[in-house]
Design a protein around this nucleic acid. Structure first.
Length: 433
RNA sequence: GUGGAUGUAGCUCAGUUGGUUAGAGCACCAGAUUGUGGUUCUGGGGGCCGCGGGUUCGAGUCCCGUCUUCCACCCCA
């Protein structure tokens, strides 16, 4: 029992300092982009009542949750997404919160799925949501914020592309073809898979889902449409479809206006598996390679209502850290030598008798707001400067014979290598002036 | 949940038809250098060869099981 080696849990990562630096690099970028677009940060608990995740999902999803019973008999689950928490929090204070609400979060999430490329059991996911803006402006801003971040990492329109469609438009078109409203949901799941399936396999599955051959043929030609403008040539547009199409066109105008038109493309094949989307849906994909989506989202106007609140519009997106990190690495946009710490001063001490002075100066520097560290043991200067270098310090302070004889310390700039001696008291007063 | 591959030092990997005491590079530590870092050279510490069982005189090597990781499927909030 005493000498058991316990392995890490399947699908989890250990964030050693060098790995943590990468995670921070990503998360800091997310937060900066959120701030640029005017989002406020929030967070919730890492576990919630299990039923919260059963509201919108079936039994299969519940099997992919880490859940447990607490000592009071409560059925709880570790959060697999933060959107239900967002809905709960917003509903709880809906009358007190200033609207529109623009919130973001970077929650740590867990899903009990089998790990594979770009998917682990514990991960981080950036979420941005806009609540109570029933206008394509909000959809455009969500897409903009995601693309603004991705551009800030150095990715270009040659690397990534946002594929955009509309659930509202798709639903209206399918219904005008004659598909019954109750059949829409299973059809969404099938259409969402189209791009991953061979043509024949898709046709076969479509034939099973839609028995009417004429309907199936029209769905096939609808899915081949390249531009929203071509839709009227394939299907006669009725009023709901016309309105949805106008809304989608307005969204693309806004994306052009925001200067990200090059990144955005209409794609009838973007459906998203989930039932709760009600309008715009989008995914950002790497142009080449076979990575899963970097991020995805859309409009879900029924969200708050489904969680017992008022019917208020909402739109948002999520971006996970796993696929993103793989892509950034592939594109050479992740340095493998990100600093794990940065110091203003590192204090080297060459004589045991000077150590108490070095300790005191280190503490003084820290209290003044500088980052500072000091050797634990006196040693050769070469070795101490090596430690200073490893600590990524801007300057080294050397306590040596100059201190003993003249009360002077040596200040060495680690970038240039230049150094000068300065009276201890002068150094201190320079800092505070 | 299903299928395939994988596992040797902290990391990346060698390791002959099964045959002495399991190797290299990188990383780490020390020395060259008792007052000058990122370079170089020399040396050192580190291994239940994933784990359990089996075959064999003998297993890192062959067989079975199991776990991990990776890949694909299911799913994808």
């Amino acid at each position: 029992m005493g000498s058991m080696k316990i392995p890490s849990v399947k699908g989890t990562r250990d964030f050693y300092p060098s790995v943590m630096a990468v995670r921070n690099f990503i998360v800091d970028g997310w937060k900066a982009a959120s701030n640029r677009s005017g989002f406020e940060e929030y967070d919730g608990p890492v576990f919630e009542h299990l039923t919260m995740y059963q509201v919108k999902s079936g039994q299969e999803i519940v099997e992919q949750l880490f859940h447990f019973t607490d000592r009071g008999g409560r059925e709880l689950a570790i959060r697999p997404e933060i959107t239900p928490t967002l809905a709960r929090m917003v509903n709880q204070q809906i009358n007190a919160l200033a609207r529109p609400i623009k919130w973001f979060s970077v929650p740590r999430l867990c899903r009990a799925e089998r790990p594979q490329k770009g998917r682990l059991r514990e991960f981080f996911q950036w979420n941005v949501d806009i609540i109570d803006v029933d206008d394509p402006r909000a959809d455009a801003e969500v897409i903009f914020t995601a693309l603004d971040y991705l551009q800030s990492t150095g990715l270009t329109a040659a690397d990534i592309q946002a594929r955009i469609s509309s659930r509202r438009l798709l639903a209206a078109l399918l219904q005008s073809i004659g598909i019954d409203g109750s059949k829409l949901e299973p059809l969404y799941a099938l259409l969402d898979k189209k791009s991953k399936l061979p043509c024949e396999a898709f046709d076969e599955m479509l034939a099973k889902a839609v028995s009417d051959k004429d309907q199936a043929a029209r769905i096939r030609s609808l899915m081949e449409v390249q531009s929203p403008d071509d839709i009227p040539q394939v299907i006669r547009m009725e009023e709901p479809a016309k309105a949805a199409l106008e809304e989608l066109k307005k969204l693309f105008l806004l994306l052009d206006l925001m200067g990200i038109g090059d990144f955005c493309r209409f794609d009838m094949g973007i459906v998203r598996g989930l039932a709760y989307y009600t309008g715009m849906v989008f995914e950002v994909h790497a142009v080449s390679g076979d990575l899963r989506a970097i991020c995805g989202g859309g409009r879900f106007d029924n969200l708050l209502r489904d969680f017992g609140g008022p019917a208020i519009a909402a739109t948002g997106m999520g971006m996970g850290d796993c696929v993103l990190e793989i892509l950034l690495r592939e594109k050479g946009l992740l340095s493998d030598t990100l600093p794990t710490r940065k110091l203003d001063y590192y204090i080297c001490c060459l004589e045991e008798g000077l150590m108490s002075g070095a300790i005191a100066l280190t503490a003084t520097l820290r209290r003044l707001g500088f980052s500072a560290d000091c050797v634990y043991k006196t040693a050769g200067l070469g070795k101490q400067l090596k430690l200073a270098s490893a600590a990524h310090t801007a300057q080294s302070i050397i306590f040596g014979q100059e201190m003993t004889k003249e009360n002077r310390l040596i200040l060495k700039d680690m970038q240039s290598g230049d150094q000068r001696s300065i009276l201890y008291n002068q150094f201190l007063s320079d800092l505070t002036s």
